[in-house]
Amino acid sequence: MPKYAMVIDQRRCVGCMACVVACKTENGVAPEHFRTRVVETVEGDFPKLRMELRSELCNHCDHPPCVNNCPTGASYKKDDGTVQINRTKCVGCKACLAACPYDARYMDPDKGYADKCTFCEHRLKEGKEPACVGTCIGKSRIFGDLSDPKSAVSKLLRENDASVRIKEAGTLPRVYYIRKLGKAE
């Protein structure tokens, strides 16, 4: 059984937002909502500033608080490590939205269920990579199987100092970040 994970190499992100567009198109994400986003943050004191571009999405955590807090079992962890939603079972109580430290979930305004990134589950079944990964022109998003030591994600994690978001939440995310920021200029 694969252990899917994503590595985001922030050194290669150019902030083109193609991943955001690809995701919305592929998954028919409702207007004003996003399954993935590119957050732009500026650090430092003027004039010595530097910008960070950070792609954010569902972290498909190994200890997912959204799954633990779901009262109906609609949110569940699959054997391949991805966190998915059974939309039929979702009652729209919004507990998973409150539980997610990454604010990765939203309520579908038309259907009323909670929604989020699925790592493009339908594409994975066809042997394709997620839409955001396929469209990334800078090759900043890399997707693969952690249980395969030859996969691109395993190799990147071996060779780089990767981190995860909000580690102190103890959720054990499956989205890793390779972050190397230059000096403020």
């Binding site: 633990n68 807090n69 779901c70 009262p71 109906t72 079992g73 609609a74 039929t88 079972k89 979702c90 009652v91 729209g92 109580c93 919004k94 507990a95 309520m107 009323g112 269920y113």
Partner: peptide, 17 residues
């Protein structure tokens, strides 16, 4: 949000929730 789906609360028990 999905008022007519609330019966799902009583078709399962999630001990961590």
């Amino acid at each position: 949000e999905r008022k007519f789906n609330t019966f799902w609360f009583f078709l399962t028990f999630q001990p961590l929730s």
